[in-house]
């Protein structure tokens, strides 16, 4: 009788069991979730509906699958779809941050009092420099990225500038002169043509500044004069 296979077998068994144990060990190390779920009470089977699949020809039930509701994940935890107007909410939050008083929003809102295309506006920069005045050609409404286009003539050359309404570099926006009649276009690009060009708004701005001096108190006027002087000094 051949004895060797019998003597070999136990060793082989041990080897196989050891290998299995090693693999098992790997499997358990892999699933971190098994560790967490260990001590918890088991859940009832998850709630679901059946989705039947029909046979196309006979119109009878072919098979069916359990379909879990999309709002349920991992036990009782619910999965809510995210808000659809996330971008709008983000815009609102940003605007609130950049314009706490709501003055800039009101200035370009679609109301009677707000600035309209065709009005002459003046924009003051935060870092000083000459304020830029011009006729409002268009308002690009993009939430926090809302911008206005002003056109003026500087030294007989047409100049257009875009300003981001909510940018901190824009210190202030003032209405110099309102257009007497509502413009019948949203964008007054035709004002670039020589026939319709408004030319320089310098005289309008000058008149407006003078009228402000008259109506405002002496202190403010003195302050304005001082500011003008300072600006002039900077220029030098």
């Amino acid at each position: 009788m051949n004895v060797t296979p019998l003597t070999r077998r136990p060793l082989g068994c041990l080897k196989a069991t050891l290998r299995q144990a090693r693999q098992q060990n790997m499997v358990f190390a892999r699933h971190m979730a098994t560790e967490t779920a260990q001590a918890r009470t088991p859940l009832p089977p998850p709630e679901h509906n059946f989705f039947p699949l029909q046979d196309r020809k006979t119109k009878t039930l072919r098979t069916a699958f359990a379909v879990y509701p999309s709002t349920v994940a991992s036990g009782s935890k619910s999965l809510a779809p995210p808000p659809t107007n996330a971008l709008q909410s983000l815009h609102e939050a940003q605007i609130k941050k950049m314009d706490p008083t709501g003055a800039r929003t009101a200035l370009f809102a679609k109301t009677r009092e707000a600035a309209k295309v065709g009005d002459v506006l003046m924009v003051t920069h935060r870092r000083g420099g000459e304020p830029f005045a011009g006729v409002l050609l268009s308002i690009r409404r993009r939430g926090i990225d809302t911008a206005i286009l002003l056109r003026n003539h500087l030294g007989k050359v047409g100049v257009e500038m875009w300003f981001k309404v909510y940018n901190k570099n824009v210190a202030g926006i003032e209405i110099v002169k309102r257009r007497p009649k509502r413009a019948r276009r949203a964008r007054l690009t035709y004002m670039r043509q020589p026939k319709h060009d408004m030319g320089s708004v310098e005289d309008l701005v000058f008149a407006w500044k003078r009228s402000r001096k008259v109506f405002s108190s002496g202190k403010a006027a003195a302050g304005a004069a001082a500011a003008k002087k300072a600006a002039a000094g900077k220029k030098k």
Binding site: H31, A33, T36, A37, P42, L43, P46, H48, G75
Partner: peptide
């Protein structure tokens, strides 16, 4: 957030 994830998965598998 999801302590029951593994148990839920096992239950679903069984089902």
């Amino acid at each position: 957030r999801f302590p029951e994830a593994e148990a839920h998965l096992q239950a679903a598998r069984q089902r």
